[in-house]
C-alpha cells in the first residue's frame, strides 16, 4: 500500500531550467560577490552579464581571470559602474581599456591573484577547505603580509578560499538536473566556480533531455548547479572585438 501511495503521489521533479536570462539573474543583490567564468574571450557568460547590467545590482565584487574585453560583458558591467572590486590574475589584456581607465582613476579596487592560486582558492571554496599552502608567490611582492610556512624544507604561502554569492558560468550542454558539458578551452574557470557559489547560474548553448549526456562525460554534475538558461547563439566577444559582429 505504501508503495502504491508513492506511485500515485504527484512527482515533484528537479528542474533547474529558467525561461530566460532575466529570470536567471533574479535575486542578485547589491554588494554581492560574483564569480564570472572565462579566459580571454573563451567561456564568458556574456548574456548573463548583460542581464545583470539590466537588473541593476551595484557595489559588486567580481572574481574572474581577466577584467573584461572591449565594451561588452564584464567590461560593460565595469563601465556601468556596478563593480567595486575585481579579484583577478590578469586585468591588463589587450582589450582591457575600460578596467585600466577605472583603475587609473582610482574608481575600482583590484586584488591581484596568480592564476593558479585564483583557481585553487575557488576550488577550495567549493570543496570545504579552510585554507591551503602554495609555493606560488614565495619571495615575491604578492606574498607581502601573508603567512609563510616551511614544509619538508620548502616554503609555502598561506592562501584562503574564495566563495561567491553567485556564479555566472557559460557551458555547452545541460540537462534539467544541471549536469554540464563544456566546450574546449571555454571550460577554464567554469567547473571550480560552479562549486564555489551559493547560487550557480549557467547559460548553455543547448538543453538536452536527462540521460542524453553520457554520465562518463559529465564534467560538472548538477549538484553544483542551481539555474540553467538556454542561450542558443551566444555572442562571440572576439567577433565583436574584430568588428565581425555587433554588440548586444
Amino acid at each position: 500500500m505504501h508503495c502504491s501511495a508513492l506511485a500515485n503521489a504527484r512527482r515533484v521533479v528537479i528542474d533547474k531550467r529558467v525561461a530566460n536570462v532575466v529570470q536567471a539573474v533574479a535575486g542578485i543583490g547589491d554588494g554581492a560577490t560574483i564569480h564570472i567564468s572565462g579566459f580571454g574571450e573563451a567561456g564568458n557568460p556574456t548574456e548573463l552579464i548583460h542581464a545583470l547590467i539590466d537588473q541593476g545590482a551595484r557595489e559588486l565584487t567580481v572574481v574572474s581571470n581577466n577584467a573584461g574585453n572591449g565594451h561588452l560583458g564584464l567590461a560593460a558591467l565595469l563601465e556601468a559602474g556596478r563593480v567595486r572590486k575585481v579579484i583577478c590574475s590578469f586585468p591588463r589584456s589587450s582589450h582591457a581599456e575600460v578596467f585600466i581607465g577605472l583603475y587609473r582613476a582610482g574608481k575600482i579596487e583590484l586584488e591581484l591573484v596568480p592564476q593558479g592560486t585564483l583557481a585553487e582558492r575557488i576550488r577550495a571554496g567549493g570543496a570545504g577547505i579552510g585554507a591551503f599552502y602554495t609555493p606560488t608567490t614565495v619571495g615575491t611582492p604578492l606574498a607581502a603580509g601573508k603567512e609563510v610556512r616551511t614544509i619538508n624544507g620548502r616554503d609555502y604561502v598561506l592562501e584562503y578560499p574564495i566563495r561567491a554569492d553567485f556564479a555566472l558560468v557559460k557551458a555547452e550542454l545541460a540537462d534539467r538536473w544541471g549536469n554540464l558539458v563544456f566546450r574546449m578551452a571555454a571550460r577554464n574557470f567554469g567547473p571550480p566556480m560552479c562549486m564555489a557559489a551559493d547560487t550557480t547560474i549557467v547559460q548553455v548553448r543547448r538543453i538536452v533531455e536527462r540521460g542524453e549526456i553520457d554520465p562518463e562525460h559529465v564534467v560538472t554534475p548538477g549538484i553544483f548547479v542551481d539555474r540553467i538558461v538556454e542561450v542558443a547563439k551566444p555572442i562571440s566577444e572576439v567577433a565583436v572585438l574584430l568588428g565581425k559582429a555587433s554588440a548586444p
Binding site: 573563451a42 583557481a119 575557488i122 563544456f182 574546449m184 571550460r187 577554464n188 574557470f189 567547473p191
Partner: peptide, 24 residues
C-alpha cells in the same frame, strides 16, 4: 575557433590525444 585558444589568447588547434581540463 575562439573557444580553442592558447594562454596568449590566439586560436590554436588540438592534436590527436589532446585533452581539455579546467583551470584548477
Amino acid at each position: 575557433d575562439y573557444e580553442l585558444i592558447s594562454a596568449g589568447k590566439r586560436p590554436v588547434t588540438l592534436v590527436a590525444g589532446g585533452a581539455f581540463v579546467h583551470s584548477a
